[in-house]
């Protein structure tokens, strides 16, 4: 139904694939993941193909995103953290492109599904844990014992640190998911008001101007949110990776 704000999140199978009783169908979500990756990859690849010493506008965008993520990672995780640069850059570009593609009418938003954002968050935390233990062994556990804490409150602090560490993947994934979900529902609801009020005749059409203005304004806001959430996701990734690189802090 046209006015159902949830309809846009529905997943429809395009090519049914079933392996071992599990459904691995190529769906509209899969198609938009491919579109996200192809769009981001092609943009970065094609705009830098001339390797101009003096960059054009599009090449500047690619270079700016490169330096933006590089400085973000260097600021929070230091030069040792730069080994994760391809990882952080991929996450940033993937989330950003998925968010932006989702803003097109009738397009599916990959990041509006909790399982996708949660998988990305688990990937980040998994990287932190695996690299932390591989690099520092059990020294990685110093992460949970901040320095300069009086002995008597250490158990309490350690408990809090562990809980906060475990809640990271949840907060990281839910933040992105909820923002995308809420933004798209809001947009859809206001756009729905425009059509349903217009159906009521001349007065309705006059009244529909207000939700129309709101729809336009929220679309602008959603572009900001799309960028902000990709940025927040990448910044938090950098900060968590910093724990893996320097667990003593």
């Amino acid at each position: 139904m046209a006015n159902d704000p949830i309809h846009q999140f529905q997943i429809s199978k395009w090519i049914p694939i079933e392996i071992g009783g599990l459904d691995f169908s190529f769906t509209n979500a899969s198609a938009f993941m491919v579109a996200t990756v192809v769009a981001a990859g092609a943009f970065l690849f094609l705009t830098t193909s001339s390797r101009g010493l003096v960059p054009g506008r599009l090449q500047s965008i690619s270079e700016m995103s490169y330096e933006f993520v590089a400085s973000m990672l260097r600021d929070s995780a230091g030069s040792h953290g730069m080994r994760f640069f391809p990882f952080v850059f991929s996450i940033f570009m993937f989330v950003l492109m998925a968010n932006l593609l989702g803003l097109f009418p009738y397009f599916f938003t990959v990041t509006s599904h909790i399982i996708v954002t949660f998988a990305l968050a688990l990937l980040v935390i998994g990287t932190v844990v695996v690299y932390g233990f591989w690099k520092h062994g059990f020294g990685f556990l110093k992460l949970f014992v901040p320095q300069g804490v009086p002995g008597i409150v250490v158990p309490l602090v350690v408990l809090i640190e562990i809980v906060s560490f475990l809640s990271r993947p949840v907060s990281l994934s839910v933040r992105l998911f909820a923002n995308m979900l809420a933004g798209h529902i809001t947009l859809k609801v206001f756009a729905g008001f425009v059509t349903s009020m217009s159906a009521l005749g001349a007065v309705g059409v006059a009244g529909a101007v207000l939700p129309l203005i709101m729809t336009v304004a929220i679309t602008g806001l959603e572009f900001l949110v799309a960028f902000m959430q990709a940025y927040v996701f990448a910044v938090l990734t950098c900060m968590y990776l910093n724990d893996a690189v320097h667990p003593g802090h």
Partner: peptide, 15 residues
Amino acid sequence: PPFDSSTFPSQLLWL
């Protein structure tokens, strides 16, 4: 839809 666990394997695989 986002909480429909039957779509999770497909989403995870393609992601």
